[in-house]
Design a protein around this nucleic acid. Structure first.
Length: 712
DNA sequence: AGGCAGGGGG
């Protein structure tokens, strides 16, 4: 398919349009640059969006801030290279001249560990003591501490701090030892305590300890900084993480490779791909050899971005640096391949991993099963499942639930039921909300309302709460079966048991409204009113008897959309269009489609090349697709009237309907064009495409010029 | 004493 004809990007469809069976380029193929399309190492933009505030500028010229470090990239590395993307290929080549000093952004020397503890005969007692402190009531702590069988020497204290788990106890003990003034508190004591605080996600306390160190003149080393930075990261305080990295540069301490990859991860989690790549290249230019952990950070980042070229780049870099991927790297890259919509490449990467002698763990298998399920690759999914059994590969609870949802994706009802029964029969893997949601999804999408309702009853009997996702599955199923009274009952009891309706559930209710009439529609609307009264008010505005002008609709719709999560916006718009169409409010439907388009809900709806104009309706509902088709035809009529150039071919892409939810769009579209007597015919070669030639279309448009078109 | 990987719904 011509790449110019881009497919619509849909949050619901993003994992369905991939069906590559191409083998993974072997690990030994020559380096291929990631395309500029997905990420470009643009120094200008790194400068423009320089992540940290350049607070340290010019104070310490020898240790520039991160922003400063990123800024001179264009002059130090790119100056003699015409093509920016070459930056990615061989950063080393910039430094072939050994007389030029390498700029250094990181210390290649890892921190040397102090010698391991000498054998401590009191170790047993001390562990006992730590255990008691771990378990004691907060108010008894002091008594327990003073009951320490051994004096708190430097070594003893470290041992105890290392064994303390709850952060409150660790901090308490640390402060107590400090108050005893028995020996100077060195960096390591702070580091160990901070680690406990990080486990409890206590960033504030960590920061306080760090400031205390600065105040008392105790050195912060790379271990201190990396602990602070990763704690901030885990608490989602990314600005703090960057701030501390900046501070580190300011004081003149170079990050070592651990701190460096921790910071790479911070930028990666912020989605700052360009900054990550700049940092990565800076490190490489300084002679850094990234290790598997750094590569797993990069792989995860490209996976989150769905960037296949980036993933290939990571594989290629490892190859050219001679870094063998380990299990974690493989797991990360497998998942990334899934997110980039490359199930075939994930499969070959998995085989490569197994061939290289690495056994998959639960996470590997979870990733792969999920990928096959979403890609509807039933054979691969079942083969892998079989292999898991044959090889005795490890299975855990999450993998069980993933297998269940894979069955839901593939419509494997019997397999799911068997697995579900196995789980019920086992001691350690009783079905939880996830498992029930998967089953509700299976029965719901298979139209088996009675079994779905049985599960609903069972859940309250066994005490597994219905969550908002299970609720959505069930309501969708009841709506489709037009069992509106049951739907209302389920919805209300869910509210009572604490389910908080979200936008997806509202979208589901709205879609039920679109297929209902009269009293049924009102019942569902009153449910929706409890979750999203503004949406109901908007439906009334659209469908009420009062004449509403376009500007009001526009403003109200904009308000609704901006209060709706991104993934639910298009479904909302689709359903609202359907509601209008089903009530003969075609004009309102056209307004909504127009608004949806200008608010960016339908990117790639129209694609044009010299030869072909295409309407992509795969992410549209039936009513929205009809509306979009009519809109297209009326604009073509105008073009014909003005006698402007037209391509030889016109096509509409409805999708082949292989996905369980998108079935019916093609046939509904076929009926619609038939009704209009439009000359679109279903393509024989390409499933899911309707084709018309210029000649046929022009003569049809002319013949209709006064009637249908005038009304649209 | 410090860095990386897994489950959900149009």
């Amino acid at each position: 398919m011509a790449s110019k004809l881009s497919t619509p990007i849909s949050p619901y469809h993003h994992h369905h349009h991939s069906s590559d069976h191409r083998p993974l380029p072997p690990f030994t193929t020559p380096l291929q640059l990631p395309s500029k399309r997905r990420f470009t190492i643009s120094c200008n933009s790194a400068k423009r969006e320089s992540p940290p505030p350049p607070s340290a500028v010019a104070q310490e010229p020898k240790t520039p801030s991160l922003a400063e470090q990123l800024k001179p990239l264009s002059t130090t590395i790119l100056s003699d290279q015409p093509n920016k993307t070459q930056l990615l290929s061989k950063p080393k080549s910039t430094w072939v001249n050994p007389t030029r000093p390498k700029p250094s952004v990181l210390s290649l020397q890892r921190h040397k560990r102090a010698s391991p503890y000498a054998y401590n005969p009191q170790i047993k007692d001390l562990r006992q003591f730590a255990k008691k402190l771990n378990e004691c009531d907060e108010y008894d702590c002091l008594a327990v501490i003073e009951d320490n069988p051994h004096s708190p020497t430097r070594e003893n204290t470290l041992l105890v701090l290392n064994t303390l788990k709850p952060w409150k106890k660790a901090l308490l003990y640390f402060n107590w030892v400090k108050s005893q003034n028995l020996f100077p508190m060195e960096t390591i004591f702070y580091n160990v305590t901070m680690k406990c605080l990080r486990f409890g996600r206590q960033f504030q306390h960590i920061e306080e300890l760090a400031f205390e160190m600065i105040e008392k003149g105790i050195d912060l080393d790379n271990i201190t900084y990396s602990t602070i930075i990763t704690c901030a990261k885990r608490c989602n305080l990314f600005d703090k993480a960057v701030e501390w990295f900046e501070r580190m540069y300011k004081t003149g301490l170079m990050p070592d490779e651990v701190t460096y990859s921790a910071v790479l991860d911070v930028y990666a989690k912020l989605g700052k791909v360009e900054e990550v790549m700049s940092l990565y290249e800076r490190g490489r230019a300084s002679g850094w050899k990234p290790d598997p952990i750094a590569f797993s950070v990069l792989g995860k980042m490209f996976g989150e971005a769905g960037d296949y070229d980036g993933i290939r780049y990571v594989l290629q870099e490892m190859k050219s640096l001679g870094v063998q991927p380990n299990l974690v790297v493989y797991n990360t890259l497998l998942e990334a391949m899934g997110k980039a919509g490359k199930p075939g490449l994930a499969r070959s990467l998995f085989e490569e991993m197994v061939d290289s002698g690495i056994s998959p763990n639960e996470k590997t298998l979870t990733a792969l099963i999920k990928i096959y399920g979403r890609a509807r690759w039933a054979k691969d999914a079942l083969d892998l499942w079989e292999r898991m059994r044959l090889n005795n590969w490890p299975v855990d609870f999450i993998l069980y639930n993933t297998l269940l949802s894979m069955c839901a994706d593939l419509g494997l009802v019997e397999e799911a039921e068997k697995l579900f029964d196995d789980m019920k029969g086992s001691e350690r893997r009783k079905p939880d909300s996830f498992s029930y949601t998967a089953m509700l999804n299976i029965y719901g999408s298979g139209g088996n309302v009675d079994k779905a309702m049985d599960l609903f009853k069972e859940m309250s009997e066994v005490g597994v709460p219905l969550n908002v996702m299970g609720c959505t599955c069930l309501i969708q199923c009841l709506g489709r079966a037009k069992r509106i009274n049951d739907l209302v009952r389920v919805f209300e009891s869910s509210l009572e048991s604490g389910v908080k309706p979200d936008d997806r559930l509202c979208g589901c209710l709205l879609s039920v409204v679109s297929i209902c009439e009269g009293e049924d529609a009102n019942k569902v609307l009153s449910c929706l009113d409890k979750a999203n009264p503004k949406l109901v008010a908007f439906v009334e505005l659209l469908t009420g008897l009062e004449i509403t002008n376009f500007e009001i609709v526009k403003d109200e719709f904009k308000t609704i959309l901006s209060n709706t999560s991104i993934e639910a916006r298009r479904p909302f718009c689709n359903c609202l269009i359907d509601i209008c169409r089903n009530r003969n409010l075609d004009e309102k439907a056209h307004e909504l489609l127009y608004l949806g388009t200008i608010y960016g809900l339908y990117p790639g709806l129209h694609t044009k090349t010299e030869e072909e104009w295409r309407l992509n309706v795969r992410s549209l509902s039936v009513g929205a697709a009809h509306t979009a088709f009519e809109e297209w035809m009326s604009s073509l009529a105008k073009i014909v009237q003005r006698q402007e150039r037209l391509p030889a071919l016109f096509s509409a892409n409805t999708g082949a309907g292989t996905h369980k939810f998108s079935q019916g769009l093609g046939s509904a579209f076929a009926l619609h064009v038939e009704k209009l007597k439009a000359p679109f015919r279903e393509s024989e070669e390409k499933a899911g495409f309707f084709i018309a030639t210029r000649e046929d279309l022009v003569s049809w448009v002319r013949s209709k010029a006064s009637s249908v078109m005038a009304t649209v």
